[in-house]
Each structure stands twice: as structure tokens, then as C-alpha cells.
Amino acid sequence: MTAPLAPSPMRGIVYSWAQVREAPGGFEAQAPYQLALVKLDDGNLICAQLTDYVGEAQIGDPVEMVTRKLTTDGERGMIVYGYKFRPLIQ
């Protein structure tokens, strides 16, 4: 039996983060950027970039998921959208 899919929580805290300076193809223009493992409110971890930060993140920062452009793909520059996390506005 497969458990029914539950909607993923949109909020969590920063479990860890890294400042990526040597970026792979497709991400060079964004470097440096902050990559994180976010611990969602249901306890699951998710790998995503942090965004809208002023200064450095801290482990334990509350964050929320937002939709952002991740990169562009192919010669025509098709935009790849995905999720990032920004500081939670309280």
C-alpha cells in the first residue's frame, strides 16, 4: 500500500547552508549563492537555494518556500522554475 500523498509543508528552518562560489554550468552568473538543506515543518529535509537574504543565513533561521527562476536551459534559454526558500516574514 502506498500512503496517500500529503501536501508538503511550505515552511521550515535552515538545517545547514553553504555559500557556493565555484558554480556548475548554468549557475555561474548567480555565484555566489546560498545552497541549503531545509528541515520542513514535517521533519523532512529538502535541498534548495536560499533567496532574498540580506547577509548570511544562520542555522535555525525560519524560512518559507517561494517559486523562483533556477536557471535557463538550452540555446533558446528556456527558463527553469523551481522552489527556493526565503526568510520567513513574521
Binding site: 545547514s16 555561474e28 545552497l35 523551481g82
Partner: peptide
């Protein structure tokens, strides 16, 4: 540079790590 990192990134999960700009070194940094 970036092209080598992209090639080495084939060791990671394409849909959940590489697409978010991860590298092996960045994940080790986490």
C-alpha cells in the same frame, strides 16, 4: 570550471540536487 563541475554533477540527483545548483563540494559543505 563550470563544464567540469556539470559533468561531475552527474553523480548527484539531477532532479532535486543538480537542478538547484548543488555540487559535490557544496553538499559536503552542508
Amino acid at each position: 570550471g563550470a563544464a567540469r563541475l556539470a559533468a561531475r554533477n552527474t553523480s548527484l540527483d539531477a532532479d532535486y540536487e543538480t537542478v538547484n545548483g548543488a555540487t559535490q563540494t557544496a553538499l559536503a559543505a552542508l
